[in-house]
Design a protein around this nucleic acid. Structure first.
Lengths: 234, 234
DNA sequence: TAGATTGTTAATCGATTAACAATC
DNA sequence: TAGATTGTTAATCGATTAACAATC
């Protein structure tokens, strides 16, 4: 528990010189947000049998500019070879380390409505390094049922489910009105990363990370760009 | 009407002086992305009976800083009253206009797996200004079935479904390998805004807007922040 | 060596924050 | 009027882009 809170703006203290240089001192948030995309791109080209890829090739698959990809990767340390490119398998491993994907991470899902149900069965979580270890729903008609091979637990067992599964991450797919309460109980149980699908801003203490996915908002943002293109077709 | 448009770098062409000043000349992307959140916050306080709210109060509900909220709203024109605050109903209407939510927008969903199924039944789309007018799935076992009160159409009817529904927006929930092809066919049929759930970067021509929601990536980004907090609990 | 491509620097651009004059 | 709060300005901060020296 001696760790200093990361991401502080002051000069980073260097208590002891580490023998092994840590892969990254700091990685900007915008870069972190793109790393999963690079991981996807690497998996894709690797599946095609490519062993080495240039920043141009990778950037093309990932949908970014080569300059941005190189800049992003430079924050992780130097993992390419000038004149050659990047070793696909090696870079994949490095990004995995930076993202903390060296072990499967247990995740709990709270709220087994349509969305929660779909996420519990979503293969993408498993493929990307996560295991759903627990399901919780407050509705007594839902608790006790089986979803994706797991028993749905009642609301009062939330903390137990988190602790028994060793989960530090959770997905909230409850109605908006219940989201903040669920959030607080998850945090109290030890959860430090929350993926929130409820259309509501969640208040969390320092050290807890929330990412919100609001599907209605996504469409509204698209609608903004679409609004002038309205077609008076006949 | 002698005021010069502020904040523009180049001289904007002024072909004809509009009688009604358009609500916004340009709105920065980062601001656009936050407008749906303000809409949500306004709906919430309005439901509590609040008629007028300060930037402090709204920002609190929306989860942003008061300065940022005021700055964002200033791009839409001036809709508050100094010393008083914002008229909740009026501001809600204004943001709705800016986002182009003055009419229900028809949306097509392609891919009726777990996720597509959940989205077809998602009340949040309806509540936020959208109507699902068509469903398409390439799987012959899925096409022909009924989902959310609509018949799922086969892949070859994609363009018809888009045109018959008048949809300019679509949701892609097909496997990654099929996403680019579906995307191109949607664009060819007239779709201009795409919400993509497939974990793949989509190539689109100018004038088409894509927003990608990759749930695996979201968890991986959370994992980055969570990685050092690993608990060797006993 | 010559060609290719990274890693890094510097310049540009955009977004956020803080402060406060304007004004209800 | 005095107090409250917006709208806007200027300063800061962070992200992106372009260019190229380093180097395989």
């Amino acid at each position: 528990m001696g760790a200093r809170p990361p991401g502080s703006t002051d000069a980073p203290p260097r208590d002891a010189a580490p023998l092994v240089r840590p892969a990254a001192r700091t990685v900007p948030p915008s870069t972190v947000a793109r790393l999963p995309g690079y991981l996807r791109a690497l998996a894709e080209v690797e599946a095609q049998g490519v062993r080495t890829a240039s920043s141009d090739a990778l950037a093309d698959v990932a949908g970014v500019s080569p300059a941005q990809l190189r800049k992003d990767l430079s924050f992780l340390g130097s993992h390419g070879t000038r004149g050659v490119g990047y070793d696909v398998a090696h870079l994949r491993g490095q990004i995995g380390v930076v993202l903390g994907l060296t072990r499967q991470r247990p995740v709990v899902i709270v709220g087994l409505g349509n969305m929660g149900h779909a996420l519990a069965n979503y293969p993408g979580f498993t493929e990307r390094g996560f295991v759903v270890v627990g399901l919780v729903d407050a509705d007594p008609r839902v608790a006790g049922t089986q979803v994706a091979g797991l028993r749905v637990e009642p609301a009062e067992r939330l903390a137990d489910v988190v602790r028994e599964g060793g989960a530090t991450m959770a997905v909230i797919t409850v109605p908006a009105g219940a989201a903040q309460d669920v959030c607080e109980r998850l945090v109290a149980a030890g959860v430090r990363g929350i993926l929130n699908f409820a259309p509501r801003a969640l208040q969390v203490p320092d050290g807890v990370d929330v990412r919100s996915v609001d599907l209605g908002s996504e469409l509204q943002i698209l609608a903004f760009h679409d609004r002038r293109k309205a077609q008076p077709s006949g």
